[in-house]
Design a protein around this nucleic acid. Sequence first.
RNA 1: GGUCCUAUCGUCUAACGGUCAGGACGCCAGGUUUUCAUCCUGGAAAUCGGAGUUCGAUUCUCCGUAGGAUCACCA
Length: 451
Amino acid sequence: MDHKPVVTRVPPSPTGHFHIGTARTGLFNYLFARHHGGKVVLRSEDTDKARSTKEFEKEIIDGLHWLGISFDNEDSIVRQSERASLYRSYLEQMIADGNAYLSEEESKNTPGQMVTVVRLKNPNKVITFNDIIRGDITFDTTELGDIVIARNLDDALYHLTVVVDDFEMGVTHVLRGEDHISNTPRQILIQEAIGAPRPIYGHLPLILASDRSKMSKRHGAVSLHEYQKAGYTKEAIINYLALLGWNPGTDQELFTLDELVSAFDIHHVHKGGAVFDIKKFSWFNREYLNKLTEDEFIAYITETFPEQLSSLPQYSEERRGRLIPVIRERINTRGEFHALTEAGEYDYIFDTPSYEKETLQWKNDPELTATLPRLQKAHELLSTADFSSQESLKNALWGYAEEVGRGELLWPLRVALSGKKQSPDPFTLAYILGQEETLLRITTAYGKIGV
RNA sequence: GGUCCUAUCGUCUAACGGUCAGGACGCCAGGUUUUCAUCCUGGAAAUCGGAGUUCGAUUCUCCGUAGGAUCACCA
C-alpha cells in the first residue's frame, strides 16, 4: 500500500567503463519503479573531476539506452558537477545549524598543504535502518568520526551530494549494491542534519566472479561493451542479469523487459551474492539468437564487425550464404562465429580439401577400394540430381544409401566433400558446394583411391 | 583486524515448519537416418557444523565455521 509514488534513481559515476554490475543495478531500479508505476531518474555522479570524463558518461548512458532502460528525466539528466551552488547552500545551512563545521587541516591529497574541509558534526548515535531486502541493519556511528563531506564549500563530496540529490529529486527508494551498506549510516546522519526524509533502502546482492569475490577487471570482461562486442544481445543481457539474484517465483526463465517489469517483485531478491556464469549467459544468448530469422541473423553477425564475414572468402557469395545457417547451429555468440571462421574451420567449403585417401575408408569396410563403386554411383546419381535443396539431394541418394548401407555411402561421401571426419552431413555439404564442385570432389576422391 | 552482510546440487535458484528437497545451465549416458552440431529421453549432483524450540526443521533461535563487503579530502 504505497501511497507515495515510487521514484528510484540510477546514479552511475563516469569514472570508468560501463560495468555490468552498474547495468544490473540500473535494471533493478528500472524494474522496481516501472512495476509500481513510478519513475526512474538518471544522475551522473561526476564530482570527482580528476577521474570523471564525458566519454565514460556517454558510454554509460548509451549503454543503458541500448539495453532499453529509459528514464523520466531524459532531457534533463542531472550532473552533480553542475550543482556546486546547490550543495554549497546546504553546506552553509548545515554550518549555520551547527551540524557541520569548517576544519583547517593538512591536505590528505597534497601533504604539506593546508586546506579547509567541511566535516559533519557526528552526533555519535546508534542507527538502525530497515532494508527491504535484508531487514533491520544496525550501526554504531561513533566509530565513523566527523566525516568529511566537502573539500571546501564549492567542492562537495559523494556522501553529501548523494543525500542532497536524492532529497531534491524526490527519490523514495534507494536500490543499490550491497557494497553500499556501510555507507548508509553516514548518509542517514547527513539526511538528519539537513532535515531530509529517509528513503527506503534495498541493498542488492553483488555479482561475483567464480572465486566468489566481487567481480572486477582482474576476473576478465566486466564492461557491458565487451559483452556487446562478443555478440551478447541486449535481450540476453537483460534476461540473464535480471535472474542473477532475483527469481520470478515460477519456473519461467525467458523474459522480455516488459515481462520482467510486470513480474518483478523486490521480495524475491536474494541476499547472497550470485556468481556470474558465462555458460548460462551464453545459453540465454543462444535462446535469443534462435528466434532470429536468417536475415536477422546475418545482420546480427555483421552488426559490429562487418569484416567478420571477410574471414570467410569473398569469392563465393553463394556458398557463404548457404554455410551461415550451418555455422549458426553451433554457436552461442557472434564471438564464437568469428573464432570458428578465423580458425579456418570451414575453409574446405571454399578451397579444395586435402586429406589422406585412407580417411575415405568406412570403418566396416575391409579395404579402401570397397568405397570406389559407391562413390561412382553417387556421382552418377548426383549428375542428374536436383541441387536446389538439401532435401532433394537426400531424396536422390537415400534409396541407394539404404541399399548399400548408410555409413558405407555417407562416410566416404562426406570425406570426399569435406576432407574431414567431422562435418555437416553430405547432403548439406553438396547443397552448399553446388553441383559442379560436388561432382568434381567426388571424382577427385576416386582418383585418389586410384586403381 | 574493527564493523556489517551472507550461507540449498559445480553454478543460477524453488520449496504456508510436514515435498521422493523441484526447475534451469553445465556435465554424463542412450536415442534421433553415417561423423560433429542440433534435437529428444534418462542419469549423477545440494540443505556448512553443533545445540535448542517443535510431534516434525532447508525453513525459527543461539553458538560456531566459512565466504564476502567495507573501513578515503573515490564513488
